[in-house]
Simulated assay, not measured.
Amino acid sequence: MMRWRHTGGRSLFFLAAVIAGVHLQRNDRSVQPASQAQIYQPVLQPSEAVPPIGTYMLKNLVGKPCIKATVGAEFIVIEKKKTWYFNLDPSSVRTAGYCGREAAVLSLTLPDNAASLQFTFRKENNLFYVTNVTVHVSPRPVCQGCANKTYSGLLADQQLFAAAKGQSYYCKSENLLLTSPELRIKLVPLQMQAFTLPRGHYGEEVECWADFNHRVIPVIIGAIVTGVILIALLTSLFLKDRRREGYDRL
């Protein structure tokens, strides 16, 4: 009996060691070396696609919304006289920034800081607007053998997307911002509001000039064309009446 117990103990010890070894091997395979960790890099495309629309909100220290933006953003890169495109994916964006009384910042950033779009807001009296737009993207190289490169741009001391307190700037038309010779940013559509956001909802919309022109110019052209047609008809009728009067006199 003693011999059987000793043999059984050795067997159990061996079996436990094998199981532990298998467990350790699985753990070793599941751990990735730090050198193999993948870094997020946007992939530039040779043709445009409609950018997905995201809604981003930033709250102040007491939890009240102070910035809200709904936008589709497209990065346009100029490299070796060719144009490349990249759309900001709202599902991957991290929202950050800060809210002050007269200045606020909304920053939209992709993982590993691979791309970012930042708006700096300013408030003056009863008006808010965007004064700075900062943008950068660090994409995969566009060609074999090309080095990794970061494209950056800045628009400073501007008065963009202005609206009155409690109102929101709204534009369905494209807003193309030339931030540097190599990088542009297209915003379409765009709605934003800063500093005053009751219950986090947009206020009355302030229509951009591009939308106003697209809406009003066809009406004006139609009215002009209609007026010209009416003038031509009236002139024709008037001339016919004059001719008839001349024949009656004869």
Score class of each variant (00 low, 15 high):
V188M: 07
E204Y: 11
R244Q: 10
K59P: 02
V31K: 15
S30K: 02
V93T: 14
F238Y: 15
S91Y: 06
W4F: 10
T83V: 13
R122E: 05
Y129K: 04
I78S: 07
E74P: 01
S35G: 02
I39K: 00
A114V: 08
S47R: 15
F14P: 05
Y129Q: 04
E79Q: 03
H6A: 10
M192V: 01
N27G: 12
G54S: 08
L160Y: 01
V188N: 07
Y169G: 06
R140G: 14
S30F: 00
T134S: 07
P52M: 06
A210F: 03
S138W: 10
Y56F: 14
D248G: 03
R199L: 05
G166A: 09
L239A: 12
I229D: 04
H23R: 15
C208H: 00
F161R: 05
A73S: 00
V31S: 14
G145F: 11
G21R: 00
C66A: 09
T235A: 11
W209I: 10
C208L: 00
R243V: 15
V77F: 05
V50H: 09
W209N: 12
T134P: 03
G72A: 04
I76Q: 04
I185L: 14
A103N: 08
V71P: 03
P181L: 02
H136V: 04
K240A: 12
Y247L: 14
F13L: 12
T196N: 11
V93H: 01
K172A: 12
I217R: 13
P198I: 10
P90W: 03
C146M: 12
S180R: 04
L58A: 15
H6D: 05
E74R: 01
R243D: 15
L110Y: 02
K81T: 08
